[in-house]
Structure formats: structure tokens, C-alpha cells
């Protein structure tokens, strides 16, 4: 019993310790790492990734997985750019309408994901991967391969207007992190995610509509991907069919490294935050200490394996596919 307890405690705190160790490590190698300017840089890079990670956290807590984020982000980013331009191309005018519309679109894509997964009874990783391809395809179709610029000063203010050294988009990401935390801890839906992840049969037997919880989870994730898409567009000032590329790898890595167990039921949005920061610090730190940036994917890949290994209780798992 004590062994189990200590193991759980370790798993719970290990990600945070890793994060602290990384910060100390990079600061020791290059003191400029530990500065407000650099933290702001990490925060800007991490804000969209955080939204994606939070979205997929809900899914992973349910024991499923969502690999559709690249397609969903590309499609919603492109859709946002087009709708924004359609309504005058300025946040001061009618352009703000694009924001709720795109959030609804993200939710709808997620809903479709969930329905394909649940109704056709296809494992979620494959259903969402396929839907992700469809999303990217739709984004290519909309843009014809072109880049759509969004240069409205008020909208780009999300990046340019700073408050205590951090741009507005960081605060927006923080706000939605709290919304996610609220959903996770203070709503029936949040409890239901854990119920499904902890044991689907049991949840079903206690009268929970598991199908509905799953589909809602995917829709909720879709909304968060759409928020991420808007933040990405604000950061780089353009949208195209590859806007979402690499988010799959980074967000899954973050969530898993942050301590959300792939088997479901364990972890939450705070783990996603710690995970995103670990990935962000590694990305940034490698550049700061002068390592080429292409090492990241390899390092993150190994990190994922280590994280999954650490979070898996071997006695509970008989075999994996």
C-alpha cells in the first residue's frame, strides 16, 4: 500500500519537479534564460499549445485520444481569417463576429469527430486522425494553398499590447485555462469525464450516458482547438492550410509529459499546463543555450516514452496494442 501511495505521489509531483529542474538547468547554462523577456517569449509560444493541450486533456482523461487537432486548427484558422475579412476585417467594426462563429465551427468539428468515433464504433485515435486529414484537406480547399493575411491592428493587439510584460493573448489563454479548470472540477460534465475514464463499464452500469459524455468531450475539445487557432492567427498574423502542423506532436507530448495517464481517469488541466511549460522551456532553452532547434522533436519523442512508462502501472496492464 505504501509503495502504491509513494508511486502516486511521485507521479503527481514529478512533472513539476522536472519543470523546475529544467528551469534551473537552463539558467545555470545561460543566465539570460531567467528573465521576464524570455519568459514572455515562452508564454507567447506556449499560449496556443496550452489551449490545444487543455482540449485534448479532457479526451485523454476519458481514456480516448484525439489526433485531429492539426486539421481542426488549420480549418478554423483559415475560416477565421476569411470570416474576419468578410465582416470588414477589423475588430473595432463587425470583425469580432468571426470569433464566436469560429468557436462554434470548432465545436461542430469536434462534435462530428465524436459522432464518427462513437456511432461508427471506430477507435478514437483512428477516427480523429482521419477527421484531421479531412480538416487539413478542407483548409487546402478553402485557401487553394494560399496564405490569408490578418493584419488588423486591434486584433494583432493580442500580441502587441503588453501588460506587466506579457501580451494579452497570454492572459486570454490563462482565462480559458481557468474556464477549463472550472469545467473539470465544478461541473457534472467534468466529473463524468473522470467517471468514463476511470471505468467505462462501471460508469455505464451506474446509468451514465457514456456516448453523450464522449461526444460532448470531443465537441468541447474542438472549441479549445478553435481558441488555439485564433491565438495562432493573432501571433503570426496569417492563416494557411499548414497553420496547425506540428500541434499534434507537441500537444500530445505536453499532456503526457505533464502527467495525464493515457489510460484515462488520471490528471487534469494543471497537468496540461505543466506539460506545455516543460515542452516550451525545452524548446526555448535549447535555443538559448545554442543547440540547434531540430533536436527538439527527437528529445520530445524520447520524453513521451519516458513519461508513458513512468505513468503506467505495469501490474494493471496485461498487453497493449
Amino acid at each position: 500500500m505504501t509503495r502504491r501511495l509513494s508511486r502516486e505521489t511521485l507521479i503527481k509531483w514529478a512533472p513539476l519537479l522536472v519543470l523546475l529542474a529544467l528551469v534551473i538547468f537552463f539558467t545555470a547554462l545561460n543566465p539570460t534564460f531567467f528573465s521576464l523577456r524570455n519568459f514572455a517569449r515562452i508564454a507567447i509560444a506556449s499560449a496556443p499549445a496550452l489551449m490545444v493541450a487543455v482540449g485534448v486533456t479532457f479526451i485523454i482523461v476519458m481514456g480516448s485520444i484525439d489526433l485531429s487537432m492539426e486539421g481542426t486548427i488549420s480549418l478554423t484558422a483559415v475560416a477565421f481569417a476569411f470570416i474576419f475579412a468578410q465582416f470588414g476585417g477589423s475588430l473595432g467594426g463587425m470583425g469580432w463576429i468571426a470569433i464566436p462563429l469560429v468557436l462554434v465551427l470548432g465545436g461542430a468539428i469536434g462534435l462530428l469527430n465524436g459522432i464518427v468515433h462513437v456511432k461508427l464504433r471506430i477507435p478514437s485515435f483512428m477516427a480523429s486522425l482521419a477527421m484531421g486529414f479531412v480538416g487539413t484537406g478542407a483548409a487546402i480547399l478553402l485557401t487553394g494553398g494560399d496564405i490569408v493575411k490578418v493584419s488588423d491592428a486591434a486584433f494583432r493587439g493580442l500580441l502587441t499590447v503588453r501588460w506587466l510584460g506579457f501580451p494579452l493573448m497570454v492572459y486570454i489563454a490563462a482565462f480559458f485555462l481557468f474556464v477549463a479548470w472550472f469545467i473539470q472540477t465544478h461541473t457534472t460534465l467534468g466529473r463524468n469525464f473522470y467517471a468514463v475514464g476511470g471505468g467505462e463499464d462501471l460508469a455505464h452500469a451506474s446509468g451514465l450516458n457514456v456516448t453523450r459524455v464522449r461526444v460532448t468531450g470531443f465537441a468541447l475539445a474542438g472549441v479549445f482547438y478553435a481558441i488555439a487557432a485564433i491565438l495562432v492567427v493573432a501571433r503570426i498574423g496569417q492563416a494557411e492550410s499548414v497553420t496547425g502542423s506540428n500541434f499534434m506532436f507537441v500537444s500530445i507530448t505536453s499532456v503526457v509529459v505533464g502527467g495525464v495517464a493515457l489510460w484515462g481517469g488520471i490528471g487534469g488541466v494543471w497537468n496540461a499546463l505543466v506539460g506545455v511549460l516543460i515542452v516550451g522551456v525545452i524548446d526555448n532553452g535549447m535555443v538559448v543555450i545554442g543547440l540547434p532547434d531540430f533536436v527538439q522533436d527527437g528529445v520530445l519523442g524520447l520524453l513521451v516514452i519516458v513519461a508513458v512508462v513512468l505513468s503506467t502501472d505495469r501490474k494493471m496492464v496485461s498487453f497493449v496494442k
Partner: peptide, 15 residues
Amino acid sequence: LFVPSFISTLAIGGV
């Protein structure tokens, strides 16, 4: 190491 194959291959793909 009991890592599901879609994650392990994704990670090795990153490497």
C-alpha cells in the same frame, strides 16, 4: 514498456 503503438511510433517518428 507498455506504450500504445500509436504513441510509441509517433515518438520514434519524432526521433
